[in-house]
Design a protein around this nucleic acid. Structure first.
Lengths: 213, 213
DNA sequence: CATGTTTAGATAGTGCCACTCTCCAATGAA
DNA sequence: TTCATTGGAGAGTGGCACTATCTAAACATG
């Protein structure tokens, strides 16, 4: 496959593919001559993954490079590669320190994690960037006077735990060498699925309750 | 409160507050003299909401303006104001047409909605931007060969429906005039909560299954 | 084989966005 | 009186994801 054919197959412009090559998101093709290179199915697949992460998952290009690198890092075991890939994903800004709302948020989140038995031993603890995002969001809600103590958070956490079991069952169906990519793709691409279903469910429920007809 | 005091109270720089004023995200303060204006608690509250939407919820400035406008639009009923506000929120690009993966995705999503009894009559149908986001994400997963037919989507949809009931119970606790803001704030700010809990749950579950120690 | 088109790769430029800087005249504080 | 501060307006900045232009080599066609 020539670059222009790769472009046709994927629907991504040649200019953008060249950009991804430059940024290291795609391995260079096998050079045939000084002005031609050969790309294969694995390039097409990688390109589709990259596109999906960037456009659907809103993952920044530089982050995508890190995620892609973690996929192939043989020095890590499966769990660590998944961890590295997922930790690289975008997160909200870190919580503002020296702020009473942040203090309260930290406290509630800590209680939550104790109850769930989540901690850094498996990577799901305060050292994870997702933990910071959670504290930031809870602090923002607190500051605005909306309830989000442990009673409100627990149902969300239990829901998240359920989803994660379902998703990892799905990941486990794949052979070893495809698992890390599957974990990343499902983590990132099920996010918009979950969020849009939630918004649609809320719209429906809000209609049932508050629609005036 | 002077602008500089509003800045101190909120932790937002005066330059940024001025920018938000110019962009219509904040009402101008009451002019005291030619060079001074007085801001009140409601400005502080609004500023905190705007900041949370932009920084924590990643809502673009122009969208935030629309959302803010919908909050105060007396010509709409509660459900419609919530609808306008939520529809303005950011979404993935619309699905690529003339594409087999998109076709399949549309079909699966249509079946799902039939089974859930969701449609445009309450706003949760194909005309909603969230519907397009869902189709785009399902198409991307399909293209990569990951399963996301109705069996996979249904549990997510049921989960989303449960969450929406919980959230609207929470919204219903607020008095009428605060409900639309509550709905918007909870919709947007619980998103990072849900996503970070999901990522943490996945990390934990992945550790339980794949960690090599 | 002559000639016009296409190719891969490098460099520079574009458009958007969320601020941020600089300037100003009017003002308040010492 | 003197001088730092204020609110407002406009231009400028930095980051990001492309996108357009250029060039030398090489393929395609008559």
């Amino acid at each position: 496959m020539k670059l222009s054919e790769l472009s046709e197959q994927s629907g991504v412009s040649t200019a953008t593919i060249k950009y991804y090559l430059r940024e290291g998101l795609l391995q260079p093709g096998r050079r045939i001559t000084a002005t031609q290179a050969e790309y294969g199915e694995e390039h097409l697949r990688r390109l589709r993954l990259v596109r999906a992460l960037i456009q659907v998952g809103r993952v920044p290009v530089s982050t995508t490079r890190e995620v892609i690198a973690a996929l192939a890092d043989d020095s890590l075991d499966q769990h660590s590669r998944i961890g590295v890939a997922v930790e690289a994903l975008p997160h909200a800004p870190l919580p503002e320190e020296d702020d009473p709302a942040t203090e309260r948020a930290r406290h509630e989140v800590a209680k939550l994690f104790e109850q769930l038995d989540w901690d850094d031993s498996r990577g799901a603890g305060p050292s994870s960037p997702a933990y910071g995002t959670l504290v930031t969001a809870v602090a923002a809600l607190t500051r605005l006077g909306y309830p989000c103590g442990i009673e409100e958070l627990l149902p969300y956490a239990r829901t998240a735990a359920q989803l994660s079991v379902t998703e990892l069952d799905l990941v486990a169906r794949f052979p070893d060498e495809e698992r890390v990519e599957a974990a990343v793709a499902l983590t990132v691409l099920y996010e918009p699925v979950l969020l849009s279903l939630r918004r649609l469910a809320e719209t429906d429920e809000s209609g049932r309750r508050f629609m005036s007809t």
